[in-house]
Design a protein around this nucleic acid. Structure first.
Length: 437
RNA sequence: GUGGGUAUAGCUCAGCUGGUUAGAGCGCCAGAUUGUGGCUCUGGAGGCCGUCGGUUCAAAUCCGACUAUCCACCCCA
């Protein structure tokens, strides 16, 4: 027995950790709807589910994000040292763990390709805002072993297929080609000098790069395309586009992909300014946006990552994948006024009017459930008024009313709540009616 | 990490320039109908007015700090 008071002055109420949220039954239905729709579609496309640990060795994520793993990214990881003195990290994304699992199991050596999907919580230590939580859910797919653009096309098509199934109309798929490692390396140099040139020839009163972009020019020049400052946008539009600067092979890949998407009737727009924060992406990158959910409006993101498996110690394996931010997608559904199909109302409400009737009511409820008929029973005696009020609120079509009088006579009231008609039936008749409807 | 908004009943919110027992709608419970719902009417329960401090005869109200939350920037594997 604790002497510590649970509430009162000076006692801090318990609350969820910042950036983590509870999801209650009405909203959970949205999540289940998306998950179920996604699973069905993934299976249709030949993907199978993989479940990997939430906790991974920190090293996995340090290596997967590679050179661009600046302080910012590692600061956003939930990393801690376990009692065995090992550094663990709660997964900030799904791909690295899947790749690790595949390499570790040796599956990639056995078969030429793998199509996997996952659904699960991810953790990033960020400042929460709309559509950005510290624990969030990703639904993702990874397609390993095929470098043909048809694989890219299939992944993108699957995404639009899924959004269409959920009822979205006006989503925008933005697509870009950022080349392979070699062409991007060359392009980054071209960009740096182009930016430097713009700075050198800059006149008084003309648009100038913001401070941040001047830093970006050195660290990761492609990110200047992401800048929202008006001056930078003007300047960025004068820079050579990455998709125009890639090698011939990469350019052909992009052309072929566009052709396949066109043929499949998948709408997209080319977005030369679409770049990714990490540099394991190769060639194809894409993003699907939905308005009405605030600044964090990308609900799906993905691309090709032909170097990652090898970087993590596996056999050279081309791969393409995507992931969905589930919480954002739910926000987008709600903003678009799309809702999951409502659950069917429970048809029967069993009402015990006094203590002696509780046993029989319980028995009837269990009988119904044994026959897969859902019923509501309060597990306590209630007044006729309160019970019927609750019954009609529940949406039940029929109330079965049992009191001391009915018990004595071996009967039960069957009241149709829509017509208010009420008949008296024996328990045998009740049981027959319950299982027949 | 930076900036701004907000914090009053279970929910959504009102409470004007400080001034008696802090309000409404919805929801909940009950009664009108002693064993019959929805509609209506009546009543009831439910509040450290986010926390701490300051100004004042007097603070939900003004000021400060803190905490939480939301939005935006940043970032976005």
């Amino acid at each position: 027995m604790s002497e510590v008071p649970r509430e009162g002055p000076g006692i801090e109420p318990l609350q969820a950790i910042r950036g983590m949220k509870d999801i209650f039954p009405p909203e959970v239905r949205y999540y289940q709807w998306v998950e179920q729709t996604a699973r069905q579609l993934f299976e249709l496309y030949g993907y199978r589910e993989i479940r990997t640990p939430v906790l991974e060795p920190t090293e996995l994520f340090v290596r997967s994000v590679g050179d661009s793993s600046d302080i910012v990214v590692s600061k956003q990881m939930y990393t801690f040292v376990d009692p065995g003195e090992r550094s663990n990290t709660m997964r900030p994304e799904g791909t690295a763990g899947v790749v690790r699992a595949l390499i570790e199991s040796g599956l990639l050596k056995e078969t030429s390709q793998q199509k996997l999907y996952y659904i699960g919580p991810m953790f990033r230590y960020e400042k929460p805002q709309k559509g950005r939580l510290r624990q969030f859910t990703q639904i993702g797919i990874e397609f390993f072993g095929v470098d043909h653009p048809a694989a890219d096309a299939e992944v993108i098509t699957l995404c639009t297929h899924l959004l269409h199934k959920l009822g979205f109309k006006g989503v925008t798929t933005r697509l870009n080609n950022i080349g392979c490692r070699e062409c991007r390396k060359a392009y980054n140099e071209v960009l740096r000098s182009a930016i430097a040139e713009l700075v050198a020839n800059q006149d008084e009163g003309e648009p100038a790069w913001c401070d941040l972009c001047q830093q970006r020019a050195h660290v990761n020049p492609m990110r200047v395309f992401d800048c929202k400052v008006e001056d930078c946008r003007v300047l960025a539009s004068k820079l050579p586009k990455v998709s125009d600067s890639v090698c011939e092979t990469c350019a052909r890949h992009a052309e072929r992909l566009a052709g396949l998407l066109d043929a499949a009737g998948v709408a997209y727009e080319l977005a030369p300014d679409l770049v990714r924060g990490l540099d394991y992406y190769t060639r194809t990158v894409f993003e699907i946006e939905q308005g009405g959910i605030g600044a964090q409006n990308a609900v799906v993101g993905g691309g090709r990552y032909d170097n990652l498996v090898e970087d993590l110690g596996g056999p050279p394996t081309p791969a393409v994948g995507m992931s969905i931010g589930l919480e954002r997608l739910v926000l987008a559904l709600q903003a678009a006024e799309l809702a999951p199909p409502p659950p069917p109302d429970v048809e029967f409400y069993i009402l015990a009017l006094d203590e002696v009737a509780v046993g029989k009511a319980f028995e009837l409820a269990e009988f119904a459930r044994m026959h897969e008929v859902p019923v509501i029973f309060d597990c306590q005696a209630r007044s006729a008024r309160a019970g019927l009020r609750a019954a009609s609120k529940s949406g039940a079509r029929v109330a079965l009313i049992i009191g001391a009088d009915e018990i004595e006579r071996g009967v039960c009231q069957w009241k149709n709540l829509e017509t208010s008609e009420q008949v008296e039936l024996t328990f045998d008749e009740i049981e027959r009616n319950l299982t027949e409807t």
